[in-house]
Design a protein around this nucleic acid. Sequence first.
DNA 1: GGCTGGTGCTACAGAATACGTAGCACTATC
DNA 2: GATAGTGCTACGTATTCTGTAGCACCAGCC
Lengths: 112, 112
Amino acid sequence: MAAGTPVPGRPVRGSQSGRPIMAAFDLLGRRWALRVLWELRDGPVGFRALQERCDDVSPTVLSARLAELREAGLLWQDESKAHQLTATGRDLSRSLKPLLAWSERWAAETPR
Amino acid sequence: MAAGTPVPGRPVRGSQSGRPIMAAFDLLGRRWALRVLWELRDGPVGFRALQERCDDVSPTVLSARLAELREAGLLWQDESKAHQLTATGRDLSRSLKPLLAWSERWAAETPR
DNA sequence: GGCTGGTGCTACAGAATACGTAGCACTATC
DNA sequence: GATAGTGCTACGTATTCTGTAGCACCAGCC
């Protein structure tokens, strides 16, 4: 697991360069990664609650994503084992805001 | 393929709500999706050139991602078969800019 | 015409990843 | 100590991605 977590500064899957944006694409382009960050934006959430919020994602993948995001420094676990964003994670979460706005414009112009 | 492409307004994998942001997470949380959009940000690129830019992603997945993004209205093919962003696609590409900035801050504070 | 090289893309087998269910360890509450 | 809730792992199955091969098409050139 340790070797597989994309982190800026070292080559990741799909990029030898180690450019930060590539590490980000790798990390966030995994299933449920974006969603997990999204669901944690308002504060700490426990494992099972998080699983529910993510439409009952399988615990296996949730556990994997959490470990990766933790290793990447985007979240951590407090004493009660609840998962929450680090400062960097909150920073990322804020950087995703434009995506929310975009998705609504996208919806507006997508024929139903 | 048609039924599998996430589009705002109908239930997608991992969300019954059809909320646009969920469709976006589904679409963009697939391997190479973000990268493809990124590599198209500066203009039309042909299939093989795009494949090279994406560190030799397998043509199978590239083809699948392109089809999905096309169906989602984010890109299209001109007469010469080159792939390029639609207005919506460019809009999304712009919305990803904060992610670039974030990734550099992330890199700056990530221990090598 | 036929050869060469480039492009767009599909086929298919094997590897990696995700899914879904079951269940264990722990804590709190009764 | 029985019950219920939580955090998470195990493991078999299903889906997705990877990597290589190769076909169809076009342009340029002889």
